[in-house]
Every structure is written in C-alpha cells, then in structure tokens.
Simulated assay, not measured.
Amino acid sequence: MNAPLREKSYFDKRVTQEMSKHLQVVERDTKETMAYACRILAMTEQEAGLAGQISVRSERPGAYWTLRFGLGFDEAKPEDFIEVDRDLNTLTGAGMANPATRFHLWVYDARPDVNCIIHTHSPWASALAAARQPLVISQMDMTPLHNDCAFLGEWPGVPIADDEGVIISEALGEKKAIILAHHGYLTAGTSCEEATYLSVYLERAARMQIRAQAFGKLTPVDDTLAAEAHDYLLKTSIVKATFNYWCRQTHGIAALDLK
C-alpha cells in the first residue's frame, strides 16, 4: 500500500529543523565577514573598478563600516574596513570612505531592518539598467527576489549628495533590492551574508533574463509558487550555508586568500 501523501508544510518544517541541526555555524566578526563578502563579489565578477560599495550598520548610532576608498573588492582584507559617521568622517581605522556611500545613510535611516548594503555596477545587472528593464521573475533561482526587487527608471546622477539618497531610498521602499536605471543595482540585507546572497542571485537573474529573452517573451513564475520559493530560499540557514560555501570557494583561489 502506498504511504499517504503529506502536505508540503510537513517537509518544510522537517527540513528547517534538520538544517538547524546539521548545517555548520561559522562565527566571524563584522570585518572578516565583510572581507569575505567582497571576495565573493570579486569571484562572481561583480567588481567595477572602485565603483563597488559595501557597508554594514555599526553598533554606534548613525555610523557604518565600509571598505576604505581606493581598494577593489578583490584585495579587501579585514583590516581595510573603516567606521565612518554621518558626515563620512573616519571614526575607526585609517583612510576615507567612498564618497558615493553617502546614499547608504538614507537607506539605513528609512529601514531599521537593513544592516548591510551592497551596490555594484556588475555586468549583467548593469545591462538591464542600461536597457531600463526591471527584473522579471521567470525561473526558480530568481525567486529570492520575487516582489523584492524595485526599479528606479531615472538616474539621479552620481550619488555623492543628499538628494540621491532620498530618491534611491524612496524607490527601494520596503524591498531588499533595486535595479537603478543607467547605473547598477543595490541590495539591502538584514545581514552581510543576506545582502551578498541577494547580490549574487540578482546578477545571475539579470544574466538569465538577458539570455532567455533571445528565445522570446519571458513568462513570470506563478505568484503563489514564487512567494513560497522566496521565503524558502531566504531562510537564514540556507543563506548562511551558501555564504559559507562561497567563502570556502575563495580559499581555492590563491589570489583571494585572506590569511
């Protein structure tokens, strides 16, 4: 006799419990995690000279950690991160912040849930931005961005002043990512690991969308199924396990050795 069919919720609950038990927990401090995030972005070909940015909200009110200006993602080490205040004065460490990180302040002010921001001009997401195309969730690996990727259709200019921060933060709203027309993208995560995870999957999604369009009009994933996949693939255990895997990958590339 065949066993009775169980509801998907049964398997979801079971898998969640087993992941909590079996997936390795890796402890890293803020600067080490940020260094790995930068190396992962470089490994996935998301560098854009010095245009790429990463920041993590500091425990100090109104401050954040960021990579000191003048370094690329591929050469970031834990000691290369500085803490800056609202006027981008350096509080901890040596060096200056990328002036374009000023708009991060507005996102942090508007979104208490956001603890990390990544912004790059990665090749495929920038291609969507150049074409002024929003993301279409048409495949399972895109679903972490389902109803979570905003679109800003007009470029406000180089984001070194306050106006750009207002425009970008308002366009982002409550979502975790945004494609910035004529510019690039931004991800806003509850953690550095989540923002990195979203960045990698957003770049992959952009690449997939551009390639798939050669075969015809894209068909969005069913909204209910996409929402279910979004929540599943953004489980903290999955996000952190994936981030840890990417960290191990960077150690397989001699030039990316953090030690």
Rank of each mutant, 00 (worst) to 15 (best):
A181F: 09
P134C: 06
A214C: 06
P144A: 04
I253G: 01
D163H: 11
C247G: 03
A129K: 03
D74N: 14
I178Y: 14
P144V: 03
F11W: 15
G184Q: 07
E174D: 15
A37P: 05
M34W: 03
G153I: 02
K21D: 13
E59G: 15
L145P: 13
G95Q: 08
A48D: 15
T101A: 05
V56C: 14
F103W: 09
P4V: 07
R28W: 03
L71A: 01
A171V: 03
I167V: 15
K235W: 00
I253N: 12
I137N: 10
H22Q: 12
S55A: 12
A51D: 06
R204P: 00
D222R: 02
A76E: 07
R68P: 10
G70K: 08
D223G: 00
L258N: 02
Y108H: 11
G72L: 01
E59H: 15
L258D: 07
C116P: 12
T120I: 04
K240S: 09
F69K: 07
I238H: 02
K176E: 14
E203V: 02
E79P: 00
E194H: 10
Y10T: 14
R248K: 14
A181K: 07
A94G: 00
N244S: 10
E27Y: 02
R60C: 07
S199D: 11
E79R: 05
H121N: 09
V26T: 12
L186W: 06
A255V: 03
A110F: 05
G157D: 10
Y10W: 15
R211L: 09
K21N: 13
